[in-house]
Design a protein around this nucleic acid. Structure first.
Lengths: 205, 205
DNA sequence: TAGATTGTTAATCGATTAACAATC
DNA sequence: TAGATTGTTAATCGATTAACAATC
């Protein structure tokens, strides 16, 4: 089935749809509508129907969408109907907090390796996971076929570490370093930008 | 001067331009071009020139942009040519890490208050900042005229706390809770979405 | 059946890009 | 002057929305 091209911005909304379906399910709802989802998400019903239509027909006229069914479909589409192994590079304050964050685990992203370059940290552990020398990273990534990295190194190291990640075969980087990473198009980057976020909001104050 | 409407997506790019100018300055460059900025940022030169043109003429034909000058202009436009006081609600693991994060401070966002609802935390301190009862939040926010909140409470409390923030007069929320907040249009929300970010990337794996 | 809501088309809206005169 | 690069216009591209036939 030659999948029609789906804009990245549509893909980016699917996790939000999925999350909202989860909330509705926990409210013991069985069925929802593009109208209800749109209200919760601050979008238009048309946009939600259009987005879903890239992937198939998931609703029923007059009724709406079966929540459990649509959740399952979205999980399949996003390929999160499985557990993904992820690893973290950079175990500073931020990296340490990320290593403890349960949200990844809870959503099927299992942290299985930690890397840092500080001799004082290498060999120590966080929870059950040992911190390894970042020099070992390429070998471990290849051996375990890891595709997803969480990058939490200082800004001035981020690009060179990202280059290493790409060379080692990583295909997705969750970037916490305040830099714009340059990577080949086959590698996806999602950057966490709290400071840029704040700076964008002060404009409106 | 009746400012022309500037698309939010343009505003969102300005902090990235500013950051890149900072990197160039630290490389001892004095002048840059839309071409050079575009390469660093993975954008087109035309887009950068167009974005800047919403606010004035900052370059010189044949030469490009004076880095220090453009930095100063962007800081003024974004209103980050001053220190903003911010406060944090929710001192769990994540909130604790955010309270220690130096990136806010370094970029002119001074954390001046912490709130939580757990009796065991209230009265204790992080660094020099005491954790206060979240019930005190509206009073403190009004007294100090705080406009910017960092929200790091559990997902199921986020909307009701956000409602409180809005009632207290907060105008900008940096949201770390994995929920879509519903707030009036005068209030800006920037959400940090690591899990959604990962879920969007697995689609491409 | 009547009412509700989907999936899709076409129109609209908005953002990006190419091109180029102006000019440093 | 010649080369470089801006600021801006117009064209293009892409995303959102309105509208509605289909149908549950």
């Amino acid at each position: 089935m030659p999948q029609k091209f789906v804009p990245a911005i549509v893909i980016a909304r699917l996790p939000l749809y999925l999350r909202t379906l989860g909330f509705l399910a926990r409210e013991d709802k069985r069925v929802t509508s593009s109208q209800e989802l749109a209200e919760r998400l601050g979008l238009t019903p048309a946009q939600i129907r259009k987005d879903l239509s890239y992937f198939g027909e998931f609703g029923k006229q007059g009724t709406g969408y079966d929540i459990a069914f649509l959740e399952k479909q979205l999980r399949q589409i996003l390929k999160i109907d499985r557990v993904w192994e992820v690893f973290l590079v950079g175990v500073g304050d931020l990296g340490r907090a990320l290593a403890h964050y349960r949200g990844f685990q809870e959503n099927g992203f299992r942290l299985i390796a930690l890397f840092d370059n500080a001799p004082s940290k290498i060999g120590t552990s966080i929870g059950a996971i040992a911190i390894q020398d970042v020099k070992e990273m390429p070998r471990v990534v290849r051996e375990k076929k890891l595709q997803i990295a969480i990058l939490a190194v200082p800004a001035d190291a981020a690009q060179s570490v990202a280059d290493e990640l790409v060379r080692a075969g990583v295909r997705a980087i969750l970037n916490y370093a305040p830099v714009t990473l340059n990577v080949p198009p086959k590698v996806k980057v999602y950057s966490i930008e709290p400071v840029a976020g704040l700076q964008g909001m002060t404009y409106y104050l």
